[in-house]
Amino acid sequence: MTQARGRTVRPYLRRIGARALAGVGVLFGAATLGFLALYVLPGDPVYAIAGNPDQVSLSAEQVAAIRETYGFDQPLYQQYLEYLGQLVRGDLGTSYQRQQPVTTLIADQLGPTVQLAAAAFATTLVLAFAVSLLTAKRRFGRGVSSVVELFFISAPGFWVGIVLLTVFSFRLGWLPAIGSGGWQTLVLPALTIAVGAAPPLIQVLRNGLEDTLDEPFVLTARTRGLSEAAVRLRHALRHALIPLTTLTGFLVGGLLGGAVIAETLFSRQGVGRVLVTAVTANDVPLVLGLVLLAALAYVVVNFLVDVVYPLIDPRLRSEVTA
């Protein structure tokens, strides 16, 4: 038995190591793209800092001063190295518009967003598992559910939020329309995000379940006298989880994008609102900081999935498949 363990653990660790390295590589690439966005693509960043050149006229000295403050007078490669060095130290630069460290601005507003994303994530998973398990291979259930899913996939998330607001806040008065204090204010925003994010998950999970329920080993399990619930929970569900890996990117994007929309719609505090304000003001360092944070979230989530999946699928653990 120890022999078997030894055979499977080492490739697993190697795989994890490789994935961690790949994740770091992606972050490095993302930072580089970010640098390009920050320094190479836009016209003159000086005006993004000082304001629209149509409205603000700057003297040559003023321009030079700004250039020096932000290091624009340095050669490009030096700026790049400087920028990477800052990133490694956890310094995301200074906001053009608010003249404060980006890190501080983000840290102040991160809490409510994390709360919202977590609540939305939990709701999405509960919805996805419940609906897919209940409707897989059930003709009527999947028919009804498919129509509902198609609707929620196709409806703009914020419009769904507006409808929820109209019904539950204004008509029924059950939940608060705006604000970010207490669990009640989380319900509608989290639900708004979840009904948009869940349908693709439901469809992938259900297709996975249905494919698995057609497998010979499920027939074998049934011939052993297992109940339908046991077949679904003990055998099919685990297999259905495997294709979900393809959706991690979608899920992270859906939750974060959803948070931006939901925070705006429900007037909640959070980094999503900060982002929208920053975009409107062309505050590239702040936008970039937030986008890099999202990339970090994506890399971390993908890494965690990579760590967990071999535990679900032992075939990923061993070196050679027969």
Partner: peptide, 9 residues
């Protein structure tokens, strides 16, 4: 074919 008739997980 036990490879597909036993649950591979």
């Amino acid at each position: 074919d036990a490879l597909v008739s036993l649950d591979p997980l």
